[in-house]
Amino acid sequence: MALPRMPFLRRIACLVPIAVIGVLVALNWPLVASGGRGLLTANRYWLLAALAVTALGWVAVSFARQGAVLEPLPARRLFATQFASGAANHLLPAGLGAGAVNLRFLRGCGIPLTRSSAALALYLLAEAAVRLVLLLTLLAAFPDALRLDGLLPQAAALPLVWAAGGLLCTALLALIAIRPLRRAVAAFAGTALTDARALHARPTRALALWGGSLAFPVLQAAGLVAVALALDVPVPVIHVAIAYLSASIAAAAVPTPGGIGSVDAALVIALVAAGASVTAAGSVVLGYRIITVWLPLIPGALVLGALVRSKVI
Rank of each mutant, 00 (worst) to 15 (best):
M6F: 08
M6H: 01
P7S: 04
F8V: 15
A13H: 06
L15F: 13
V16T: 08
P17Q: 06
A19D: 12
I21E: 00
G22P: 02
V23R: 12
N28L: 13
L31F: 05
T41E: 14
A42Q: 09
A42G: 12
L47D: 08
V53W: 11
V53S: 05
T54W: 10
W58H: 13
V59F: 09
V59R: 11
A60E: 08
A60I: 01
V69D: 02
R76I: 13
R76V: 12
R76N: 12
R77V: 00
G86W: 03
A87M: 04
A88Q: 04
A88M: 11
N89E: 08
G95L: 04
G95R: 08
G99Y: 01
A100D: 11
R104S: 15
L106W: 05
G108N: 07
G108R: 04
C109Q: 14
S116Q: 02
S117R: 02
A118S: 15
A119C: 10
Y123K: 06
L125H: 02
E127P: 00
A128C: 11
R131F: 14
V133S: 15
L134W: 12
L135S: 09
L135P: 10
T137V: 15
L146D: 06
L152K: 02
P153Q: 03
Q154A: 13
L158H: 06
P159H: 10
V161R: 11
W162N: 09
A163W: 11
A163P: 06
G166C: 15
T170I: 13
L173H: 14
L173Y: 12
A177W: 09
R182S: 10
A186I: 01
A189D: 11
A192L: 14
L193F: 06
H200L: 10
H200S: 03
A201P: 05
R202S: 07
R202T: 07
P203Y: 00
P203A: 02
A206P: 01
A208R: 08
S213Q: 07
S213F: 02
A215T: 02
A215V: 01
P217F: 00
P217K: 03
V218D: 00
L219D: 10
A222E: 06
L224P: 03
V227M: 14
A230R: 13
V235Q: 07
V240S: 07
V240I: 14
I242P: 09
Y244A: 02
A250T: 01
P255F: 06
T256M: 10
T256F: 02
G261A: 09
G261N: 04
G261T: 06
D264E: 13
A265C: 01
A270K: 00
A273H: 03
A273I: 01
A274Q: 07
G275D: 08
A276D: 00
S277E: 08
G282E: 04
G287M: 00
R289Q: 05
I291V: 15
W294N: 06
L295D: 15
P296E: 08
L297M: 07
G300Q: 12
L302R: 11
L302W: 11
L302N: 10
L307T: 14
S310F: 12
K311A: 15
